[in-house]
Design a protein around this nucleic acid. Structure first.
Lengths: 172, 172
DNA sequence: GACTCCATGTGATTATATAACGTTACCTTC
DNA sequence: GAAGGTAACGTTATATAATCACATGGAGTC
């Protein structure tokens, strides 16, 4: 297991999701949930897919597809874009990861197993991303959809702004 | 004026925003509002920018930056990507247009002058896009932001699904 | 063991977006 | 109306993101 001491030479300040968690358990919980879900659904949680999820969980921030590709290549997998895109597509399709449209980047799901209409808060200063639960059908969007007869199948909800840590730095 | 009879040889079925409007007036109203706003704010509503907005208003659908570039080139402007991106950036920055992150495409604002936290409904079958008003601070996203100390500066709210017209087709 | 299905690996290409730089137009200030 | 500053424009080049097409290989089924 790769748990507690990661080989993260990469990041800027802090990977974060605004609040501190037990990061090692994040990874094992996330992988475990995916394992279980795949077993239950008869999905093939292959080595690339598993490694891709592990990478996202380790980084704990939004990763571009090509960053993912670099990591996967380093781990001994194929080196062409489809390798990364296919793994990410699988993770997203099964709710283990999400795509942040605003950033064209991907992040591990913070609530594995939960119902899943995620909403994201993206710090424009440090690029950290936190995941919250959205309630699409409620609120003005749901009203508009009902009024026009539009059927909502999926929602993208992303807020851009400043995270508490960066706000503190700015104050100082 | 280009008003009522447009030279739209382009689109698939129907440009739409789900509901029928007086399309000719859309264009003149949109351009007029932009004109007025720019004059009031001391902004330079240059020929490229004006033409770009006119194109978006005519199309009445989300246009990719390179489609926009084609149109601008046809209209006698520069033919390199920055030409389109700069015009679109200006329009977005000043609320005359919006970027649909999900589509990497741009659409004219449907509520020129309004307060502006837009929400979009995107039909996955015909790619039509309708704009509604969102209420970011209210709802679960606002709750999460307040709880974590995140400052929201801008929101992206996009719903993907099926528009009423396409739903009808599917029924038939 | 042959078949099928799905996943993988690769090469090539398309789409989207930005960097960098010189030139031009506009608006001031004198 | 000339000098100077600023913002917009045009172009070349390049970076980043995503998909297509096709061959190979491995896991399950019969």
């Amino acid at each position: 297991m790769t748990s507690s001491i990661q080989d993260k030479q990469t990041a800027p300040g802090d990977p974060v999701g605004f609040t501190k968690h037990d990061h090692g358990s994040c990874i094992s919980v996330g992988l475990g949930a995916a394992d279980a879900h795949c077993k239950a659904q008869g999905l093939r949680f292959t080595p690339v897919r598993r490694k891709a999820l592990e990478i996202l969980l380790q980084e704990h921030r939004a990763l571009g597809a090509y960053e993912m590709l670099d990591r996967l290549r380093d781990a001994g997998f194929g080196s062409q874009p489809p390798v990364a895109y296919r793994a990410l597509e699988f993770l997203v399709a099964n709710g283990f990861a999400h795509k942040i449209e605003r950033l064209n980047a991907f992040i591990a799901c913070a609530h594995p197993g939960a119902s899943h209409s995620p909403a994201f808060m993206i710090c424009r200063l440090c690029d950290s991303v936190a995941e919250a639960q959205a309630s699409p059908a409620r609120g003005s969007l749901g009203d508009a959809a009902r009024a026009t007869g539009f059927t909502i199948e999926k929602t993208v909800v992303e807020a851009e702004g400043v995270c508490p840590a960066c706000a503190d730095k700015a104050d100082a």
